[in-house]
Design a protein around this nucleic acid. Sequence first.
DNA 1: GAAATAGTGTCTTTGAGACAATATATG
DNA 2: CATATATTGTCTCAAAGACACTATTTC
Lengths: 236, 236
Amino acid sequence: MANRSKTINYDPTSFPPFAVTADLVILTVRPPQLEVLLVRRSTAPFAGDWALPGGFVGPDQDIDDAARTKLADKTGVTINKAHLEQLASFGAPDRDPRMRIVSVAWLALLANPPEPTTGTEAEEAAWIPVNEIDHSALAFDHATILNAGIERAGNRIEYTTLATQFCGAEFTIGELRSVYETLWGTKLDPANFHRKVLASDGFVTETGKSCSTGRGRPARTYKRGPAERLNPPLHR
Amino acid sequence: MANRSKTINYDPTSFPPFAVTADLVILTVRPPQLEVLLVRRSTAPFAGDWALPGGFVGPDQDIDDAARTKLADKTGVTINKAHLEQLASFGAPDRDPRMRIVSVAWLALLANPPEPTTGTEAEEAAWIPVNEIDHSALAFDHATILNAGIERAGNRIEYTTLATQFCGAEFTIGELRSVYETLWGTKLDPANFHRKVLASDGFVTETGKSCSTGRGRPARTYKRGPAERLNPPLHR
DNA sequence: GAAATAGTGTCTTTGAGACAATATATG
DNA sequence: CATATATTGTCTCAAAGACACTATTTC
């Protein structure tokens, strides 16, 4: 192969190989907590530490397919029921002590996830509230990746309708509001939030039904609307 | 190494290696045109086609360092004079016919760049107006990457002060406006734009000087302010 | 003076946010 | 009834955009 650069001038097949992994920040909202799916590592390095679920990308596997597969593998949730987007790649030379590994990180947003399926694997997996996580105890550079995922999720719901991905098929405006409050760590005015959501074209559509949530007046329920972008956006 | 997944269950050192490249979308604004730095490939595959500048990440090289190095190599511009951020990674198995290559793409924003330094390389390099590019003629999946870069740049300048990266050290409000108009492909009201920029705290700071731009009343000049985020944001 | 660009003033509309008021459930 | 949540109404303030107007240059 010809050189493509003066500064990096070699045959890439001649040096120790890179491996590429797909690592996932899988978030769910259980008000008032934001939770992330973590696995406990059973082997070195970082044996016993919590880590993001992830795995190597196969030789003939598309990188998004690796992410989708891992998501289904860990949560039993197929891609049509969740949101999955690429987050960023992390590739410091020493981020994994075993070999050179570049991690392509993904962000997944999920509603009402089942308990993690540890069945076929030796690893322990669990939903952990993000504010209970000791970031310095996460394996590799996963604390950095987790932070990037949480920040991205908070930003996304400002301009897109993705907050509904954290709700079931039918939900109340109050439930949707608690998603925002959880991700943003703020309290929002119920009255103003209500009006803004209904005014945002295509954000939610009425089901015609109501549901009692325990105390208080029963709320009307809604389902996801056709819009993907929020117009106008919501502000923290 | 232990298995980290049921679905992907092998020793990554045992399969044909991945290579990782850093590919750059280097943009500059020469009103009324947005231009990108492309190199003409001299070898197969895609010999003779235009491609994004890029190169392999070295075995012990941080992925951002590979991007910084390539940027300096191609433009002679050091990182302090430009903005560089990670865009996304592209890793379809067949995106490069030679071998498995995952590309980490980066976005660079530059003002008044020198002509590309083709000196030490055999490759032809040139600034090409993006609306003159035949996307189907770009090598690999670089059309996709280029589009992602242009879209990202347009979004970034809504919420951040990065538009000033396309201006020289001192610039007029009109020059700044033409950056927005070029990236967004719209015309903005000069009066409202002027007021909004000056009202946005820390966006620009006065130099006290003026400059004549040919015809019309000479404009005051400004330099970049301390702010990184735009408050309130600008809208298209 | 005509044309061009810079910069200011002002009015209208829209959305954000505070908060009062009403509606309907549970205990 | 007290309390809690849902939903509607209303008022105020800030920002967006339209656009008239003034300022200062070149030709």
